[in-house]
Each structure stands twice: as C-alpha cells, then as structure tokens.
Amino acid sequence: MFESTDLAAVWLTLKLAAVTTTLLLVIGTPLAWWLARTRSWWKGPAGAVVALPIVLPPTVIGFYLLVAMGPNGPVGQFTQALGLGLLPFTFAGLVVASVFYSLPFVVQPLQNAFEAIGERPLEAAATLRASPLDAFFSVVVPLARPGYLTASVLGFAHTVGEFGVVLMIGGNIPDQTRVVSVQIYDHVEAMEYAQAHGLAAGMVVFSFLVLLALYTLNPTGRRK
C-alpha cells in the first residue's frame, strides 16, 4: 500500500524530528535554565521571542525564513560567508527552521521544571561541595526528568507535525526535504486519495500514541 517514496518521506521525517529534538535539548537546557533563574530585564523579551512560534502562523515563519536564509538575507549572507552555501531546500535548512519552530515546546516544559525545583536542592548540593556543573547533572537533571520527558515528546511530535514552514522553504526534494506532511499534501492535490489516507491515518495513530504515552508516563504533567 505504501510506495517507496512514502517510506522515504516517513524515514526523513523521523530523522528530522530526532536531529531537531536532540539539538533542542542541547540548546534548550541552558536557555530554559537561564529563563528560570534570571532576574534580568531581558527575561520578558527573551521569553516572548521563544514563545513566538506558538502564535505566529507558519506562513509568516516560512516566508521570513525563506527571505532571511536567501542570498540577500542576513542568515544567507552569513552561511555563504562561511562557505556553507544557502540553507533553503536542504536538510540542514529544515533542521534550522524546525529548531526555531519547535523551540517553545522544549524550552517551556524545561523552564517550568527548573522553576519548580527552586534554590534549595542546589544550596544543599553546594554545602556538600558539589561544583555547579556537578550539582546540575546530579541534582537538577534527575529532578527535572518529567520536564525532560515532556520536552522531548512535544519537541519530536511538533516537528513531525510541521507542514507550512517546510512547504515554504523545502522545495519538495526527495530524501532532503519531502517530509510526510508534504507528501500527504501532494497526494491530496494529485487526487491520490488512497495513498493520502494511508499516510494520514498513520499520522493520526502516531500522534495519539505519542500523546497517550506522555500522559500515561507523566500523569501530573508539569510538576507543581
């Protein structure tokens, strides 16, 4: 029932979501930590920028990314100066876009988890002569595990569900930028409804199972 192009799209989507989630956890951890603990004036603006992709339509993000990453855009000039070429129509470009697009879904659960932990466990760790880095990995990370679970699942699932941004900067290249959501769209447009149903139903089942796992493993959601 699935064509080889469908399976290629599924594989590419999983790869994109995995790379994006990994990068987001690496970038999101210090960012969320800073947001959770800073008293700086910048906390408000930074938090707002992180949350932007939740409210902006994907067309706005896709359009600005296309322009910014193009040959005349600031990002495009930067990547060209580094000898990397242009990002649109490449897998790397999709990763950059997805990291921005799914950022709040990773940062916000982590930030909530860090805020819930508070100062006291760290103070206790400090009295035991733990270095701040040691304290972070042996005290904060284990305490924030539900936050990390939520962040990973939401970051991954949100990237799998991405469509508008990929459509606008992807260029529909097999094995590079043709993800499942775009493939479904093409099937529908080409009136190949049977193939569209196969992939679309798969997406519904996948999304349900992911969220079910999240709510079962993490019944309280965020920690109070």
């Binding site: 296309l66 193009g70 649109p88 260029g171 529909n172 769209y185 093409d186 447009e189």
Partner: peptide, 20 residues
C-alpha cells in the same frame, strides 16, 4: 538541481527571493 513548488505561485517565490 530541481526544487519544486507546490504551485506556480510558490515556484515564483523561490526564484524571486533569489533562493533558486
């Protein structure tokens, strides 16, 4: 070197922004 737009308007967008 193909990049595909889902319709001709999007294809125009790819070229007019200089990305293609």
């Amino acid at each position: 070197k193909f990049v595909q737009g889902e319709n001709i308007a999007q294809t125009y967008q790819f070229v007019s922004t200089g990305n293609a």
